[in-house]
Computed example of a mutant assay.
Amino acid sequence: MKITFEEIDKKQIEPFEYIAKWSNDPEIKYFIGANLTEGEMPDREPKELLKNAGGNDKHIYLIKDGTKPIGDLSIMIDPPHVKKKEKNTGWISICIGEKEYRGKGVALKAMDFLEEECRKLGMKRIELGVFEYNKRARAFYEKIGYEEFARVKNFVYYEGKWREDIRMEKYL
């Protein structure tokens, strides 16, 4: 495996086609996206993702093995939805979209990359949200130094009931 990270061109649709494919994968969609209404979570369209890609305060990267896209990452700078309003906070997300790459150390490399990019962008703190039922991700974040500091009750709908979003943070 030759894992690299490439910031996407937000004017090109192709990266968003991969991101939409992963966002709609029934095996992981409820772990990487928030279902904010009761019932099934609607599929995401590449054009919608491109439209919502944000300006200079959002950085989106593809994770690649050689030339093959296998996942995506993002950093938002001081977004309004952070729970703890501290200046220079990066909100991060990670998705290992291709099943055969999960559990192979890619997420650890991705988090190292994200933390370094946050430092380069002047971030002093990282905040993320992990759904209460995503125990594997939560254990991973704890292992690499993230600490729970808050919970948002009734945030996401999953398997017939409303669940909490656990907010975690790490100071850089």
Rank of each mutant, 00 (worst) to 15 (best):
A20Q: 13
R44P: 00
F31D: 12
A53Q: 05
A53Y: 04
P42C: 02
P46F: 06
P15G: 09
D43F: 03
L50R: 04
N52V: 01
S23R: 12
I28C: 03
N35F: 04
E17S: 06
K21Q: 14
G33N: 14
F31V: 01
E40F: 03
G33S: 14
P15D: 08
M41C: 07
D43C: 08
D43R: 02
I28W: 08
E38Q: 15
A20C: 13
S23N: 15
S23A: 15
E14H: 11
E27H: 09
A20K: 13
Y30T: 05
Y30F: 12
N24M: 11
A34T: 12
Y30S: 08
E40G: 10
E38H: 04
S23M: 12
L50W: 01
R44F: 11
L49K: 01
Y18K: 12
K51A: 15
E45S: 05
K47L: 10
L50C: 01
A20V: 10
D43W: 00
E17Y: 07
L49A: 09
N24P: 12
M41G: 03
N35E: 10
P26H: 04
N52E: 13
N24L: 02
G39T: 09
F16L: 12
Y18F: 15
W22I: 05
K21W: 02
K51T: 10
A34W: 09
Y30M: 06
I32Y: 08
P26M: 07
P42K: 11
E17M: 14
E48W: 04
W22Q: 11
D25K: 02
E48P: 02
K29F: 04
G33Y: 03
N52F: 04
N52H: 02
Y18G: 00
D25A: 06
L50H: 04
N35S: 06
N52W: 02
Y18M: 06
M41Q: 15
N52D: 10
W22A: 09
T37S: 11
S23G: 13
N52K: 10
N24Y: 06
Y30P: 08
Y18C: 06
L50G: 04
N35D: 09
I32V: 15
E40V: 06
E38N: 03
K29Y: 04
K51E: 14
E48M: 07
P42W: 11
K51Q: 10
A34E: 01
A53S: 15
R44E: 13
I28Q: 13
G39Q: 07
E40R: 03
P15H: 12
E14F: 09
E27F: 05
E38C: 04
P15E: 10
Y18R: 02
K29S: 06
F16N: 12
F16C: 11
E48C: 00
